[in-house]
Design a protein around this nucleic acid. Structure first.
Length: 245
DNA sequence: AGCACA
């Protein structure tokens, strides 16, 4: 069977932090259609860890790649995923597990874990949020990054450190592609643009914040843009403090 | 190091 034209349905994933666990990669991919299994490998030269994620077909693999490429895997270390189609498919046969070699410290995920034969329940919203907002970003809580000195997590982001020529259109382009984007308010504050950007919830704003932090827009003349949780959620009166909660 | 709109 010379599968000369065998469709590559495996993704090659790099940019992983060195304390990555196979479980994390598994949880990253498992909500995507067609995902089957993954394994970690130590890349040849350096001692970088890479992962191979196997899908049922190339189209599914590419969809997951599109969704996750560039994902800031670990905001604390700045690790950003780099995903491409693998050069060849993983041998996913349950062949000799001896071929794993000394490098592979982890057990492989051969399909869904949990009850044998019972697939995962599909990706419900809470699961999606749990995986992407909490587990993958390694947030301490569903509230996002609550770092001392910053505002508490908020679904509205404040964007600053933009160049004087940064237009509303440019900013909108950068921000509106993030999941949960709702609206942006752009204004000039003492000659420089700033913006308020509303997201569906804190997890969405957190993801955009962590991925766009320090991003260099073409117009920028002063280092990357800076994002913070806004002091007040868009559309919420700030003066109402009398009532509880 | 800059946080408005309702």
């Amino acid at each position: 069977m010379a599968a000369a034209e065998e469709e590559v349905k495996t993704l090659f994933v790099s940019g992983l932090p060195d304390d990555i666990k196979e479980r994390e990669i598994h949880n990253l991919f498992r909500i995507y259609d067609g995902y089957e299994t993954c394994q970690l490998k130590y890349s040849g030269r350096g001692f970088q860890i890479v992962a191979f994620a196997v899908f049922t077909d190339q189209a599914s693999a590419l969809k997951a790649k599109e969704a996750l490429n560039g994902f800031t895997f670990d905001p604390q270390s700045g690790s950003t995923l780099h995903i491409e189609l693998a050069r060849a498919n993983s041998r996913t046969k349950r062949s000799r597990s001896e071929d794993v070699g000394p490098g592979a410290a982890e057990k492989k995920f051969r399909g869904p874990i949990g009850v044998p034969g019972v697939p995962y329940p599909d990706a419900g919203l809470s699961f999606f949020l749990a995986v992407h907002g909490i587990h993958l970003c390694r947030l301490d809580s569903v509230n996002g990054f609550s770092t001392p000195g910053s505002n508490p997590p908020c679904s509205t982001l404040f964007v600053a450190n933009l160049g004087p020529t940064c237009t509303e259109e440019e900013l909108t382009q950068a921000l509106s592609r993030y999941p949960g984007f709702q609206k942006m308010k752009y204004q000039i504050k003492s000659g420089l643009p700033v913006a308020f950007v509303e997201f569906k919830d804190v997890l969405c704003s957190t993801k955009a914040l962590s991925e766009l932090q320090n991003f260099n827009l073409p117009s920028c003349d002063r280092g990357g843009m800076r994002l913070e949780y806004a002091k007040a959620k868009m559309g919420q009166p700030r003066t109402v403090r009398s009532t509880h909660v």
